[in-house]
């Protein structure tokens, strides 16, 4: 083989391997989603959504309590996490723009995004569950919101920074105070971007299990009382998948399917909004 051929062959091999890598990535995605879909669809039925769990080992029953519980914990986490995150991001991008403190908080937030979620669960157990004296939906929602805040904060900061400075100056020239400029002009300009960040942060926490294990705990009955233990889909999946009953496994698959669809929907929605808004 000439040197030329050798070079070409090496190139072909490397390119084929890269293509193979992409196929491997796609293979895992299809494998996992397909598997969840196949198992999940088999187990989907109306009873799953309108009934509460049957006693252990008894066939039938549903996960109504877990669906509602999951929804409530996620909604309250969002209600706590989003305002704090958006306001925090505003400080970094506006009042503290270019200052050292903004850099530091920004970097720390990036680190917080990836801090093990189970550690946050233990933290909330120590400061809330044990102090108040019972497991509660609130503890779960707060644990999730702590995961959410840095995500929202960072996206908000990035999105506000993208809004051209001249826009603010124009408003200042009219004598508007800074807070009005931020709320009426900057937020408006960055709204879609922030919304995307919120959607992705909800997607990030909606599938969390580890921080809920010792905070919102679990409940075998239907409860919407955020002051007491509340059931969630993810903790129920953990319990049911580890359980010995085939019926439990089937319900865990169905719950997995629902939660996966929900999260992938949010993720895709977020992506499309970005694409649609920031294409040009």
């Amino acid at each position: 083989m000439t040197r030329e051929q050798l070079r070409k062959t090496e190139g072909v091999i490397a390119m084929s391997l890269s293509t193979l890598a992409a196929l491997i990535g796609l293979f895992w995605l299809v494998f996992i989603l397909g598997d969840v879909l196949v198992h999940g669809i088999k187990a989907l039925n109306l009873s799953l959504f309108i009934n509460d769990p049957a006693p252990a080992g008894v066939e039938g029953g549903g996960l109504r309590n877990a669906f509602i519980g999951q929804l409530m914990i996620t909604i309250f986490a969002t209600l706590i996490g989003v305002p704090v995150g958006v306001l925090g991001g505003t400080f970094l991008a506006e009042y503290a723009r270019g200052r050292k403190i903004a850099r530091i908080i920004s970097v720390l937030s990036d680190i917080m995004v990836s801090v093990p979620s189970i550690v946050i669960g233990t933290f909330i157990y120590a400061i809330l569950v044990r102090q108040i004296g019972h497991f509660s939906g609130w503890a779960g929602a707060i644990a999730l919101s702590i995961i959410m805040i840095p995500v929202v904060l960072r996206t908000t900061e990035d999105m506000l920074t993208l809004v051209p400075w001249t826009l603010r100056e124009a408003a200042f020239a009219l004598g508007a105070p800074y807070y009005k400029v931020i709320i009426q002009i900057v937020y408006r300009g960055a709204a879609t971007g922030i919304l995307t960040g919120i959607l992705l942060s909800i997607a990030r926490v909606a599938g969390e299990t580890a921080p809920l294990l010792f905070t919102s705990f679990n409940n075998s009955f239907f409860s919407t009382n955020m002051n007491g233990p509340i059931s969630s889909l993810t903790v129920t999946i953990f319990q049911y998948a580890m359980g010995p009953y085939d019926d439990w496994h089937a319900q865990a698959w169905a719950a997995s399917l629902m939660i996966t669809i929900f999260i992938l929907f949010l993720t895709l929605l977020g992506r499309f909004i970005i694409k649609w808004r920031y294409k040009g």
Binding site: I32, G207, F238, A241, I263, L264
Partner: peptide, 25 residues
């Protein structure tokens, strides 16, 4: 675009789903 999104979806799948899939499949 589509392949990029597909790969990122892998990151969006909740870890509990990975766990279940890992155990049963």
């Amino acid at each position: 675009g589509p392949i990029g999104i597909a790969i990122e979806l892998l990151a969006a799948i909740p870890s509990i789903i990975y766990g279940m899939w890992g155990l049963f499949t």
